[in-house]
Design a binder for these strands. Structure first.
Lengths: 334, 334
DNA sequence: TTGAAAGCGTTACCAG
DNA sequence: CTGGTAACGCTTTCAA
């Protein structure tokens, strides 16, 4: 549509009978301008409905106040909470968020990255699409990774202590007396899949329990995978006594299977889940879960990126781990 | 940080030994340039790691390929699904999303609106913060409202047929034989609160049932409000036989109250909810809900805004209503 | 206290 | 085919 051009500084200047410089001064309060001139300029701005063109300002000032957010899928309920924290922090400092989704496709990630860089975002907040991270090297725009982070030590990272979270969950099950404990996790090549698996293994090991491949599944973080993995477990001649599901989608799928088939939790099989969701207290039985502060993580991510932008020299990469907490309800059999 | 300046067209031109015009031509494939020159330019681009400055391009071309998204709170699970649809549609056309939250604060909405306009977004997608909409008049940037839309007929709107949704839900309860049917809804001044209430009233009216103020609550869309309203209902000397909760937060609160206090659904009180959530099938009993296609709504919103941007002349405002559907599960007593 | 003009990084017209 | 240059809308230096 955009039929008529938007008013510019020049238009305002003309109408107010002053130079563009003067108008710029009053808008930015950079110089002291006489009351009467100011008045005239404000009137002109008002009557033209003038809003400064931020593109031109950015071009001139070399600052866009834009942060690029690169995530796999905004419908994953984990993200909105975190984004909310990020947004609140950034908004305080007049930074805005440019959103882009990758659908966990590294190709799309690469494309979007280029787009964001082209738009001259001042910082990047990213949860990795896949295992490839080469396209993030050699970028001199500050980056904070979160959730799905690269292994490399050279980047800022904010994450839950996934290992500890899984350890906590598994150990709780062990101390409860269960021996045949299974796990459903995400892909090996993602820290979030791998570290949770490692935490599980370590807990089993520390308590002298065997790690059996028939009780471990790690492939995708999806509802279907959770459903299918649970189905496989329950059709084993010796099904697990307890299962640890490593993210909300997996929990959803696994739990759905159990409900559909009429299994009783925790009697037939106990459950500990990752991610404390809205509904964890509403299902029957209420879910014992690993919880961590999503909003606060977002705020911290926002702080970290703002700080990295401010810095004149590159400071050592920070790896911030948030402590998970076990929320004991009833699905574990307690 | 941003220590070293990013390479510019000029840098590329210099390195390749050509003019900036020529470089621009090859980048945009606007003119036919000889193979060898092209080659040299690509090499220069490669070695400098040059990415065109989109700000300058936008300024020159008068197109930002940016859409502003103005919503109350991204953590409301309704939004992410819709946004996903929007994002996918827009991404196909190389448009990106600038996200901003209002926290349902009209003041913040006004501010953010100005910011988005300053950034010269080509279109606006908004779910209203409050009842005030004056700041949206006199804006010549195309707007599509969704979810919380203004009453005015002058704007494009995409919404669920809220009236019909509530009518459907209420009528189902009525046909089931319940007489004392209550409703918990959101504020009167929001279409989403009001229309759902109206649908309820009409259904009651059409079936000769009285509308009693003790059975109607409309104030806020929050978990707490849902909890409290349900508590009030159940402490009535004659509690309702069935309740219709008008959004996911209200459902969450109301259901939580019932669970906590040990009420049996649908025996003690039947329930029909608005919004089909992930967990609606997992709770006990599975929830009978009103469902509508969130992702598809997002796609439609994206289409509509793109179309409005393309149009040379302003076409009449469209009011698109998505049909809700009743998903009968067990909380209604069927 | 005000203004002229250069420049931010592109694009595109017009010449050659 | 290639290039000089004005212009997009703003900020800021320098001068008046």
């Amino acid at each position: 549509m955009q039929v008529k051009r938007k008013p510019t500084l020049k238009d305002v200047a003309q109408l107010a009978g002053v130079s563009t410089a003067t108008v710029s001064y009053v808008i930015n309060e950079k110089k002291i301008i006489s009351k009467e001139v100011k008045e005239r300029i404000f009137e002109a701005i008002e009557s033209l409905n003038y809003i400064p063109n931020n593109l031109a300002q950015s071009l001139k000032n070399r600052e866009t106040r834009l942060i690029g957010l690169l995530i796999s899928d905004i419908a994953n309920p984990f993200f909105p909470q975190v984004i909310r924290g990020i947004e609140h922090k950034l908004a305080m400092h007049n930074y805005n968020i440019l959103l882009s989704e990758t659908n966990s496709d590294p190709g799309k990630e690469k494309e979007n990255l280029k787009m964001l860089l082209g738009r001259r975002v001042e910082g990047l907040i990213v949860s990795l699409a896949g295992r490839e991270v080469n396209h993030f090297s050699n970028i001199d725009t500050p980056i904070v990774f979160f959730n799905r982070v690269p292994d490399s030590e050279e980047f800022h990272k904010v994450q839950v202590d996934n290992f500890k979270a899984a350890y906590l969950a598994t150990e709780h099950l062990i101390l409860h007396g269960y021996k045949r404990i299974a796990i459903i996790s995400g892909p090996e090549y993602l820290n979030v899949g791998r570290d949770r698996m490692l935490g599980y293994r370590q807990a089993m090991l520390d308590h002298g329990l065997p790690i059996l491949s028939k009780y471990t599944r790690m492939d995708r973080f999806s509802v279907e995978y959770g459903y299918n993995a649970m189905e496989e477990f329950m059709s084993l001649s010796e099904p697990p006594e307890a299962v640890f599901t490593c993210n909300n989608a997996l929990t959803l799928g696994a739990f759905r299977f159990l409900k559909e088939k009429g299994y009783l939790v925790p009697k037939d099989v106990a459950l500990v889940a990752y991610d404390d969701t809205d509904w964890a207290t509403l299902v029957d039985p209420p879910l014992t879960v690993v919880r961590y502060p999503m909003y606060e993580m977002g705020v911290r991510i926002g702080e970290l990126i703002l700080q990295s932008i401010q810095e004149k020299v590159r400071t050592p990469a920070q790896n911030i781990r948030f402590d998970p907490e076990l929320v004991i309800r009833r699905s574990c059999g307690c």
